[in-house]
């Protein structure tokens, strides 16, 4: 219930946070909203000697317009992203996913950057961000680098963020006017998805002009269903056409087998959820 002892610092700038992390070395841990880290510390699955709290760094918070993209600060909470007018106008897929992520109390504390840095395969933000082709800005001692969503997720709870580095912001291209839907399959409402599918669709008349599809919990990282995207382009937004395209959602997936369902079951569910998500996003 109670974490092991640690030293604590709460810097107010990214530079000070990086300096603290450099000093703390590999025993230092970044604290964002704490909604995943504090349970881990309480269960003593991890016992860092230094915790660097980003909660007082104002520059990491908020959403701004950047031409053809919106930029979301890593420390913007789930509930702030959910209510943000820019996100609601240009990235409705995020709104749809956050609406179903955890519960109100957790959404008040948990952050956009924290959830992505945590990289839980069942996390609800990875698939939408991957599907939208976001880029991640990571700050380190030697300056900042940007990483494409396709390269960001490396494996189970692992991203390209190295010790001593910080995720500072995520740049999400604008999907203005696209329809979006996040179809999440769970047993209990505020829990992690067994499988979920994120879909953004641009329709012209009754035809799907372009589609983006991301899969949650179908492997150790979120996955982009590129073959489904290709199969959907130019198709009518009908149940029949979307059902046929959704059949390839399982391509390249490695779903886990656990108490919630085995891998074959998840593969089946993924095709069903893909069909539902795409049809809902297309408004059909």
């Amino acid at each position: 219930m109670i974490p092991a002892q640690f030293e604590y610092v709460a810097p107010t700038t990214v530079e000070d946070a990086l300096a603290a992390l450099a000093e703390g070395g590999e025993d230092a841990k970044v604290l964002a909203g704490g909604q995943s880290l504090l349970p881990v510390l309480r269960m003593r699955l991890n016992a860092p000697s230094l915790v660097v709290d980003l909660g007082r760094i104002e520059s990491l918070r908020g959403v701004r317009d950047d031409g053809d993209a919106i930029v979301i600060g890593a420390m913007t909470t789930h509930s702030e992203v959910f209510h943000d007018p820019l996100v609601n106008e240009h990235a409705t897929l995020l709104v749809k996913a956050i609406e179903q992520l955890a519960d109100p109390q957790v959404r008040h504390r948990g952050t956009f950057g924290g959830a992505l840095a945590h990289a839980d395969p069942a996390g609800d933000l990875g698939a939408p961000v991957l599907a939208m082709g976001a880029t991640f800005t990571i700050a380190g001692a030697g300056g900042s680098r940007t990483v494409a969503a396709d390269d960001f997720f490396q494996g189970l709870l692992t991203t390209v963020i190295e010790d001593g580095e910080l995720l500072t912001e995520v740049r999400v291209p604008k999907f203005t006017g696209w329809g979006a839907h996040y179809e999440k399959f769970v047993r209990v409402h505020h829990q992690w998805p067994i499988v979920a599918v994120a879909a953004a669709v641009r329709t012209e008349g009754g035809t799907i002009a372009e589609a983006r599809v991301g899969l949650t919990n179908m492997g150790l990282t979120p996955l982009r269903a590129r073959s489904v995207e290709a199969a959907l382009a130019g198709q009518p937004a009908t149940d029949e056409a979307v059902r046929a395209a959704a059949a390839s959602a399982t391509e390249g997936t490695h779903p886990p087998s656990d108490l919630n369902g085995d891998a074959d079951y998840r593969r089946h569910v993924a095709t069903v959820l893909t069909r539902r998500a795409v049809l809902a996003a297309a408004g059909a």
Binding site: M1, Y8, G34, L38, P39, Q105, H108, R109
Partner: peptide, 30 residues
């Protein structure tokens, strides 16, 4: 009160600057 060990139950909910949080999942220093 504290009702669980997993931050699932919500029994510990308080308001921090006017919004609800689970106080078992926030450090006092925060």
């Amino acid at each position: 009160v504290i009702g669980c060990d997993t931050s699932n139950c919500g029994a510990c909910t308080v308001h921090l600057d006017g919004t609800s949080v689970k106080s078992c999942n926030v450090l006092a220093v925060q």
